Amino acid sequence: MENMGMRRAFATVGLAVAGAAVAGMMQAGSAAAVEPVVDPARGLYFGVVLNEQETVALSNSPLPAMLDGVYMSSATIRILGESYLDEDDENVYADLPEVVDTAAALDGIVGFALVDPAGNGGRPLRVVAVFP
């Protein structure tokens, strides 16, 4: 079962990267550069951080809704900074489209990461939204 969760997580990160890259390339004059991150010592196997323009492009695409319906049961969402999303110390009460749209509207960024499920509530995918 854990193997299926990892496959979903890999597919989610891959789709997010592909969607942001395509959307970024479609923006005239955009210098899209999805930033990869890796830190196995801290349980971060692979991740990508989208810049503000890529976050807006992702927000304007159908990809967040597609990912939310299929893959988000394998993910945790974390919020860094101030937003108007409903959250407490443990949970964010918003779906992926809401998180991405809010980040885009507030000049924030989003990132997707494959992580060690043992340090992520048993889930292999982490989505982080950073608000200024």
Rank of each mutant, 00 (worst) to 15 (best):
T55P: 02
Y84L: 09
P40L: 09
R78P: 00
L63A: 09
S30I: 03
A20V: 05
L106N: 09
S74A: 15
A21H: 08
G69C: 00
V48H: 04
V115G: 07
V37C: 08
V127Y: 06
G29A: 03
E54P: 01
T55A: 09
I77V: 15
G119A: 11
T55C: 01
G121V: 05
S59D: 06
L58S: 02
V99W: 00
L114T: 05
G119T: 10
M1G: 13
V22M: 14
G19W: 07
E82P: 00
R8M: 15
G108I: 01
G111R: 04
S61V: 06
V110D: 01
L63E: 05
E82Y: 07
L44E: 12
M4Y: 13
G69T: 04
V17S: 11
L44S: 05
G29S: 06
A57W: 04
P117R: 13
Q53N: 13
V100I: 11
L96G: 03
A41F: 10
D68F: 03
M26N: 10
L58Y: 00
N51G: 15
V37N: 08
L50A: 06
A113P: 00
T55W: 04
E2Y: 09
D88K: 04
Q27F: 04
A65Y: 00
A16H: 05
P40C: 08
M25D: 08
A94N: 01
P36K: 08
D88I: 04
F10D: 07
M4P: 04
A28R: 15
G111I: 04
A105I: 01
G81W: 03
A18H: 11
D95P: 05
D101M: 10
